[in-house]
């Protein structure tokens, strides 16, 4: 079901992105869209190999990597914290009534902690970064491409795949798990605040009951799966940005397609990874 939906969105993005179906122009045929999709995956594959090679082989761009970690990580922190806090509040308010109805009110802290640690925190952080960072990378590299700045870099004997792309992908990979921890923290904290406003409970008791049955296998795999989300966001942002064509309109198209594709691939990856985690780390 999710896969079918993802295919449909991807095909729509493909038709819009690669053939620019505009008002008055005929939309791309199914065959053309399919060819575009296959081409897109082929190009993405060779781009990925190039990024891996650029990241592994010296010289290493540590200074640019740190700058990107700051741009991706610390500048996204307020937004992911806000998103996490909102999730915690909503989760607390929505779950409270349901649990009261079933006479399981005492489970509320555990429900909040488990759902945020295992799923809500990672996916919220992934989706927020798809929008903020994916769009940012797509727009920045897209405008660099159309203004020949990437060509200028290459002409100066600097590998743009190493300097621009590999550093951004690595920054996303490194910072997303940390941002997820921040999301989890804010979610749980604000879950407690929302809970304590309706039914006062001390933070200590909330955390003790919430974390009573939590193990590392509840926290580590679900947090580390965001490494994959970060890779997806960085890779697609750079890929779409660096293949931008057609001036400012092209930059706009790249940004839109980056956000759509990042969100979609993050969701699909989440489905796959949740299943994988359940197999590898079964709930006892």
């Amino acid at each position: 079901m999710v896969t079918s939906l993802a295919c449909a969105i991807f095909a729509m993005a493909a038709a819009g992105t690669w053939h620019g179906s505009r008002n008055g122009e005929p939309t791309a045929s199914t065959a053309t869209v399919l060819v575009s999709v296959v081409e897109w995956f082929g190009e993405l594959g060779s781009f990925t190999i190039r990024i891996f090679r650029a990241a592994i082989l010296p010289p290493y761009e540590f200074r640019e990597l740190i700058r990107q970690c700051d741009a991706v990580g610390s500048k996204s922190l307020p937004l992911v914290c806000l998103a996490g806090a909102a999730t915690g509040v909503v989760l607390s308010l929505e779950t409270h009534d349901s649990l009261v109805r079933f006479g399981a009110k005492s489970f509320l802290p555990a429900v909040i902690v488990f759902s945020i640690l295992r799923e809500s925190g990672p996916i919220i952080a992934g989706l927020v970064l798809s929008g903020r960072v994916g769009a940012g990378i797509g727009a920045e590299l897209g405008s660099m491409k159309v203004t020949e700045q990437i060509d200028a870099m290459e002409a100066s004997a600097v590998d743009p795949y190493k300097y621009l792309a590999a550093t951004r992908v690595l920054a996303c990979v490194l910072t997303l798990p940390l941002l997820t921890v921040a999301t989890d923290f804010c979610g749980i904290l604000m879950g407690w605040v929302a809970n304590t406003l309706t039914e006062p409970i001390s933070l200590r008791l909330f955390l003790e009951t919430g974390f009573k049955n939590v193990t590392f296998s509840d926290f580590i795999p679900s947090t580390m799966k965001t490494v994959v989300f970060g890779f997806i966001i960085g890779l697609i942002g750079c890929f779409q940005g660096m293949r931008t064509k057609g001036g400012t309109e092209g930059v706009g198209r790249s940004v839109t397609s980056t956000v759509v594709l990042c969100s979609m691939f993050v969701i699909v990856a989440d489905v796959v990874l949740v299943r994988l985690i359940l197999v590898l780390f079964p709930v006892s």
Binding site: E148, D151, A152, M153, E154
Partner: peptide, 29 residues
């Protein structure tokens, strides 16, 4: 890359890196 180090290229619209200052642009290579 080795050959390119010995060749300068002035682009039609200059193609300066817009996130860097002018001094940083010249310092970059």
């Amino acid at each position: 890359a080795e050959v390119r180090k010995n060749i300068g290229f002035l682009f039609q619209h200059a193609a300066l890196y817009d996130s860097m200052t002018i001094l940083e642009n010249v310092e970059f290579p």
